[in-house]
Amino acid sequence: MDPQAYYYQYPMMKEFDAVVQSCQKVTKGYVLTLDHTAFYPEGGGQPCDVGRIDTASVFDVQEKNHVVYHYVDRAFSVGQNVHGRIDWNRRFLMMQSHSGEHIVSGLIHAQFGYDNVGFHLDPHGLMTIDFNGVLRPADIDAIEMLANDVVSQDIPLTIAWPTKEQRKHMSYRSKKALDGHVRIVTIGPYDTCACCGTHVERTGQIGSIKILSLEKHRQGVRLQLICGRKAIMDHQQKHKICAQLSPLFSVPVEGIVTAVKKAQEDRNEKSRTIRQWQDKYIVLKTAMLPSSKIQLIEEDVDRLTMRDFCNYILEHTDCVVAMVVAKNQGAYQYVMASQKIDLKIKVNELNALLAGRGGGQKEMVQGTFRADIETIKKVIQQWNDSL
């Protein structure tokens, strides 16, 4: 980390001028170094900045051995004066998100003693944080409220670069032991943390903090959260969904969950009833079948019912092969079952004759025929006659 880097000294800088120090051709475009830069390189779980240098697109920024490398789509001359412009919407979202994460992690650490042991921020502002302890949904609701209270206080974030000796007398969060330049980000009494990411100047700039999910992860939990504009967009989307569901179920928004559960129960009950009638129909249909070595029936049923049909026919008739076909979008789905013929071999022959595709095990195969039903019946009858 370079304390003099523009992205640390001037976090609100959107544009800057610089001089090209080197430019090399690489597999994907060119890699460029400048005498100074406001483009933040990927690090600390935070994506890099993107944007433009003159007319070139900056699509990746990395740091190695204290040198920042800009990956661009066209070449530059060494010594050339250039103008850099950061994609500010993305950068500001990263700043809002990273600062919001510090508040949430600091509050959880203070209240529960848990450490943030894993952090990832994607380019769209979705954050994933792992903690080494268990939290309940009620805990998360309380933390979210407190975090937004901190935002509303509009507290300034302070940045410090203490020496190793000074750090011995400081209390701050860090995932690992640190040496060299260490940057400490403090948010009032709520958090002090070693961090190399970019941050807003005051908590009010974060906007909103929304925790989206809580799930078990290893010995602790994993949270997903969003901040700022991303949180507002999430709220708008979910509000629209609720506004559409409420009249559909003729209930207020707070009654949607109960109404959906009731609809699921009704659907499951109807499915059970339909299944019972299907089973009865299979029994009746099978009893009406004439004696044949290959039983071919056409039924408008799903794959699962086709399989049940075949199994029942095999068990309750003296046929060698049971076959069900069902028309679907101009083709015929099929399921075949047998306990005496290796259908895995036979299905290749039938697919060739009936413009089909499919396969399975020797006892049961399934697929689709592109032939018409009369052609299918003719081919199956010829097979029946050969047995």
Rank of each mutant, 00 (worst) to 15 (best):
T158Q: 10
V151C: 02
H83G: 01
Y69P: 07
V67N: 01
L157F: 08
S97T: 15
G106S: 04
D141G: 01
A147D: 02
P137V: 09
L126D: 02
M94T: 06
H98R: 05
A160E: 12
H66D: 14
M127K: 02
D149M: 01
G106K: 00
F76S: 13
I103V: 14
L135W: 09
A160M: 11
L93R: 13
Q96I: 00
A138I: 05
D139L: 00
D130M: 05
L121Q: 09
L157N: 06
V117F: 05
R85M: 13
T158W: 03
G106C: 12
I159E: 11
V68P: 00
V117Q: 07
Q111L: 15
A142R: 02
M94H: 15
R136K: 15
Q153D: 11
Q153N: 12
T128L: 04
A75G: 05
I159A: 10
V134P: 05
F119R: 13
L107A: 00
H109G: 09
I159D: 02
T158D: 03
L107M: 07
D139P: 07
Q153T: 02
E101K: 04
F92Y: 15
I140Q: 07
F92H: 15
E101A: 01
L121M: 14
H70P: 09
L107G: 05
M145V: 15
N65K: 13
V78P: 04
M95N: 11
H66Q: 14
M95D: 06
N81T: 15
T158K: 13
V151H: 01
E101G: 07
H83D: 01
V104H: 04
G133Y: 03
D73P: 11
S99D: 03
V117H: 00
L135C: 08
F131K: 08
F76A: 07
M127P: 00
G106Y: 09
R85I: 15
I143K: 06
R90E: 01
Q111T: 11
